[in-house]
């Protein structure tokens, strides 16, 4: 039977604002299937976002929803989770939102290991504001604020999450929808701070200035650029060039989750 997306969507808020061919719809559907797979009640799910195209997801989904300020969604989410740890808190954001203006919050949320899932849509650009360079834009690429090409190196979201101490880290793409759903569900199942980077695209904001103007070209790119982690390890260094590994990079079940630690502290402090 076909999946009933409508059960989870606020249908009166459709149509959404995203461009035809955007990968965000693919990501959202994968996320909803994963939520369904968890068997969570809608009343027990909170979806929090910052600003940007990805930031509009909460408005479309029939959960407890919060559309916060640019980059700061994780801080609100921590407040929610600490007050009601039984709620399932999902934070969605783009690369600019989560890694540039929200970079500090991302690092510290990962370090604390609060049981929140961060789903990061990486389209390598600021889409909503019209295609300005972001921390994950490839070096040399043209954007509306790098008309001569991007001077800066790109940031690796997985590496940042790993370095900061996130206890579940995965990367998939909007082409690999089955795998994406699986990773998001595994992230939900994980007790601790989990990060799923979703490699996507913005063909209108970035692709059309960099010889990848159509949605199909971009899905093709996602299909070929992302290499399973194990396959990547077997590739000789010269063939790894330009490829992006996908897979589960970390699944650490040892590190104790923050709300659990806090519960222990409350018992201890109360004597």
């Amino acid at each position: 039977m076909a999946f009933d997306y409508e059960y989870y969507l606020r249908q009166d808020k459709m149509p959404h604002i995203w461009c035809p061919g955007c990968g965000l719809g693919v990501m959202l559907k994968s996320m909803l299937r994963a939520v369904h797979g968890m068997g969570w009640k809608k009343d027990d799910v909170v979806v929090v976002s910052g600003i940007g195209c990805t930031g509009r997801i909460p408005g479309y989904v029939d959960f407890n929803t919060l559309h916060t300020t640019h980059g700061r969604a994780l801080t609100f989410a921590i407040g929610i989770k600490m007050v009601k740890p039984h709620l399932n808190v999902i934070v969605v954001g783009g690369d600019g939102d989560m890694l540039a203006i929200g970079g500090n919050h991302f690092i510290h949320a990962a370090r604390r290991n609060v049981d929140i899932t961060a789903i990061v849509y990486n389209n390598e650009i600021y889409g909503m504001t019209g295609g300005q360079v972001s921390p994950t834009t490839p070096h040399g690429w043209r954007t509306t604020t790098t008309p001569y090409g991007n001077l800066e190196p790109r940031m690796d979201i997985v590496e940042i999450a790993m370095g900061a101490g996130a206890t579940f880290v995965a990367r998939s793409t909007v082409y690999h929808t089955g795998q994406l759903e699986d990773y998001i569900k595994k992230a939900f199942e994980h007790k601790g701070f989990s990060v799923v980077e979703v490699l996507g695209h913005c063909h209108t904001g970035l692709g059309r200035r960099n010889k990848r103007p159509s949605a199909v070209q971009n899905f093709q790119w996602e299909k070929t650029v992302a290499i399973p982690l194990k396959a990547m390890e077997k590739l000789p260094p010269e063939k790894r060039e330009g490829k992006i590994p996908m897979g589960i990079f970390r699944d650490d079940k040892e590190k104790v989750e923050y709300t659990e630690i806090y519960k222990e502290l409350m018992k201890k402090a109360a004597g």
């Binding site: 994780l74 407040g79 929610i80």
Partner: peptide, 11 residues
């Protein structure tokens, strides 16, 4: 972040 967490908690 403190102010964000305060708002999240209040909500």
């Amino acid at each position: 972040a403190s102010m964000g967490a305060v708002i999240g908690a209040s909500l």
